[in-house]
């Protein structure tokens, strides 16, 4: 990588860093005994949702007709929120499990 590219990259990082007013947060959602806790969370664009699966079963966070995050047994998975929207998700393997993430503008 040439020096000016490195500089340009560094400048971009700085720009991005200064244009984000609040520091992005990580919001944890426990997955235990087939329940997402808390079931409803509020977040901002750029925040990360962290699902911590304590179950002996695999789960998913799935939006009907949309994205899907696999949550393997005893694993933690993360999703960074890209836009302001209300995300209603459920577990495709256990459709009783439901959650909602309300994402607002940063």
């Amino acid at each position: 990588m040439r020096a000016e590219h490195v500089l340009a990259a560094a400048a971009t990082v700085m720009l991005v860093a200064t244009s984000v007013p609040a520091r992005a947060e990580t919001i944890q959602v426990m997955v235990d005994k087939l329940v997402f806790t808390p079931a409803q969370v509020s977040a901002k664009v750029g925040d990360t949702i962290e699902w911590i699966n304590r179950d002996i079963l695999a789960h998913t966070a799935t939006v009907k007709g949309g994205m899907e995050v696999m949550i393997p047994v005893k694993k933690t998975v993360r999703l960074t929120l890209q836009k302001a929207e209300a995300i209603d998700y459920y577990c495709r393997f256990h459709p009783n499990m439901k959650g909602r993430i309300t994402v607002s503008a940063p």
């Binding site: 005994k33 087939l34 009783n96």
Partner: peptide
């Protein structure tokens, strides 16, 4: 008890 929780979910899923 965990099993019961899981299998209750299965029962409801099966009904659906």
């Amino acid at each position: 008890e965990t099993g019961l929780k899981i299998f209750q979910g299965h029962g409801q899923h099966a009904v659906h």
